[in-house]
Design a protein around this nucleic acid. Structure first.
Length: 204
DNA sequence: GGTAGGATTACG
DNA sequence: GTAATCCTACCT
């Protein structure tokens, strides 16, 4: 019997995004369905966005959308991009510090939920390879934005298994640090992390 | 009130 | 390479 993984708390997330982003690799995102079923995926790719970061939505100050990033750690920040996809972020750091981690890819562990189209089921390990695809698989949209990441909200994070060894240079899985994807500003900031060799990496 | 551009994706 | 599609932020 393996003990249940601890739920990740606000305290743990109240550190800078560039610290949390690599620490979330190997952790699990869990979605509770009304049927009682749970959809789980291991986080394998993240990006950090912080204050003084021109690529961060909160960089130009508070707006109705970005104020979530200034709020306390442990809340969800979900936004619509290109009119058709959602991106899921975990708010990090102290209150009043604009900061979040974008979760870019999951390795799905359980059977995929029934709303995933048959075409995507053909490659289950790629079903959540990308921030938009991840939100489709987990049924995340803006209704789930600005909510605490807790089981009571049907969406939460669980800690990495102690048996999973992730290191920058060695171990079961190698952690790679590189630059972020799709930006027009701060393209050289190396705040993207991913698990080397994961089939779910959105852009290897 | 108008509009440029976007932390994306799938298809050709 | 490029279309799809709509919200946000910023301008007048």
């Amino acid at each position: 019997m393996t003990p249940p993984a601890p739920i990740i708390t606000t305290d743990w997330l109240s550190r800078p995004a560039h610290v949390i982003a690599p620490a979330l690799i190997g952790c699990t995102l869990v979605r509770q369905l009304e049927t009682g079923q749970q959809v789980r995926g291991m986080i394998v790719e993240t990006e950090a966005y912080g204050p003084d970061d021109p690529a961060c939505h909160g960089y130009r100050g508070r707006t109705p959308r970005t104020q979530i990033m200034f709020g306390p750690a442990g809340f969800s920040y979900v936004y619509l991009i290109y009119g058709m996809y959602h991106c899921f972020n975990v708010v990090t750091d102290q209150t009043d510090v604009a900061s979040a981690v974008l979760v870019r890819a999951l390795e799905m562990v359980d059977p995929l939920p029934e709303w995933v189209p048959a075409k995507k089921r053909q490659h289950p390990h790629r079903a959540a390879a990308g921030p938009g695809k991840l939100c489709q698989v987990m049924n995340i949209d803006r209704q789930l934005s600005d909510r605490p990441l807790l089981p009571s909200e049907s969406l939460w994070l669980e800690a990495r298994s102690p048996s999973l060894q992730i290191h920058f240079d060695q171990g079961d899985r190698v952690l790679v640090q590189t630059t972020r994807i799709g930006l027009s500003q701060a393209q050289d900031v190396p705040w993207r992390w991913y698990l080397q060799g994961s089939p779910a990496i959105s852009k290897p």
